[in-house]
């Protein structure tokens, strides 16, 4: 269903640095129901990738929907996706619209 989201984009972020380098806010049961990128740190994998921007909302991580997940659970999923050695990248499904 994620790919049917209007105006969503798949962004593949290679693990090119020791950190992912994004800050997120939001999650289920908050004013921002899906995690939104609030910071991108220079020199992190996300910054190096060049395709993620502040304000974008993350719909899915490696095909896993973040809908209905509370902030900590969403943050854990992203952290695990970065930590796992199974993949050299993380796929984010993002949208510009809140």
């Amino acid at each position: 269903p994620g790919l049917l989201e209007p105006m969503s984009t798949l962004v593949r972020v290679p693990k090119s640095a020791n950190t992912l380098g994004i800050a997120i806010e939001g999650g289920a049961n908050t004013r921002q129901p899906l995690p939104r990128i609030v910071t991108i740190q220079r020199g992190g994998s996300a910054h190096n990738c060049g395709q993620l921007k502040v304000g974008q909302v993350i719909l899915e991580v490696n095909g896993i929907s973040l809908r209905g997940r509370e902030h900590r659970e969403a943050a854990c999923l992203i952290a695990e996706a970065f930590k796992t050695k199974e993949k050299e990248y993380i796929d984010f499904l993002i949208t510009e619209f809140n």
Partner: peptide, 15 residues
């Protein structure tokens, strides 16, 4: 709408 306004702000996590 009104219901949304009652929801708390989220914490921020650096990843």
């Amino acid at each position: 709408r009104e219901k949304r306004l009652t929801l708390p702000p989220s914490e921020i996590t650096l990843l």
